[in-house]
Simulated scan of single mutants.
Amino acid sequence: MSSDHAVLASEAEARDWIADVLSPTAEQWARLERFAAMLVAENARQNLIAASTVPNLWVRHIADSAQLLAFDQRDGAGLWVDLGSGPGLPGLVVAILSERPVLLVESRRRRCDFLREVAEALDLRHVAIAEARLEAVETRPAGTISARAFAPLDRLIDLSARFSTESTRWLLPKGRNAVKELALLPRAWQSLFHVEHSRTDAESRILVGQGRIAPKKRGKA
């Protein structure tokens, strides 16, 4: 792997990468630190992240989320919709590091309680939380759609397609099966995406796309 795609190997490298690429303000750094602390504390009460990843929190979760923002720093790009946001990964990290309005879609009540707690504690007024299954969320145009761990790729895209416009950026981490999942999509969908390397896992990939996707017609494959 070239140095352009060097994988972040330590917590210090993760912090340095965020500093170099996203240039957080002192206030944003303080919010990131507090969010990280709140995430670890809440993880003792409900299973938000794997306990084995806590010692590498900044690589595995904070930088892993922040790298998506690095793929879309467009001015005036509009609403960022984060599907299956869970503990706010990547949605809360995006909201901390940018002024983008962010909609966190999460159906589990306890996780939504945590999202609301963090948004209030960090004064993230540009964050909205939809406590519902995606199918029940009101359609609105999304500037960006992200989903870190939501559903198989074809279902993810089909369910969220109604939010997309010609300028929508899709940012979909799909781990080691990204290329295989992409190959199974309808060709019209495939053509909108390309594959990027993850900064946090040498074998993981991120599907980056742009454009409007028409949902599948019901009753057809």
Rank of each mutant, 00 (worst) to 15 (best):
L32A: 02
I49T: 07
A41H: 12
R31E: 01
I49P: 04
R34A: 02
W29D: 05
A26L: 13
E27A: 14
L32V: 01
Q28L: 00
M38I: 01
N47Q: 11
L32N: 01
V40I: 12
T53K: 05
W29F: 10
W29I: 05
W17D: 05
A44S: 15
I18C: 04
T53D: 07
A26C: 14
E27C: 11
L22G: 04
Q46P: 11
T25K: 00
V40L: 05
L22Y: 03
A51C: 15
P24I: 00
R34S: 03
Q46T: 15
L32P: 02
A30D: 11
P24V: 01
L22R: 04
A41N: 13
L48Q: 08
L39M: 07
A37H: 10
N47G: 11
A50N: 11
A41M: 11
E42M: 09
A19M: 12
L39G: 05
P24N: 03
A41V: 11
T25D: 00
S23L: 13
A30H: 11
A41W: 08
A26M: 14
E42Y: 04
A19T: 06
A44V: 14
E27N: 14
R31V: 00
L39R: 06
N43Y: 07
S52Q: 12
Q28D: 01
E33C: 08
S23N: 14
W17I: 05
L48I: 10
R34V: 01
Q28G: 01
P24A: 02
A44C: 14
S23R: 11
A36G: 05
L48G: 10
W17S: 04
A19N: 09
T53H: 06
D20T: 09
L39C: 07
R45W: 12
R45Y: 11
T53R: 07
L48Y: 06
V40E: 04
A26V: 11
S52F: 10
L39K: 04
R34D: 01
Q28T: 01
V40R: 03
A36L: 02
F35P: 00
W17H: 05
A37P: 10
A50Q: 08
N43R: 08
I49G: 05
P24W: 00
E33Y: 05
L22M: 03
A30S: 15
N43L: 08
A51M: 15
Q28E: 03
F35L: 01
A44P: 14
T25W: 00
A44K: 15
L39W: 04
Q46G: 14
E42I: 04
N43G: 07
A51Q: 15
Q46H: 15
D20I: 07
P24F: 01
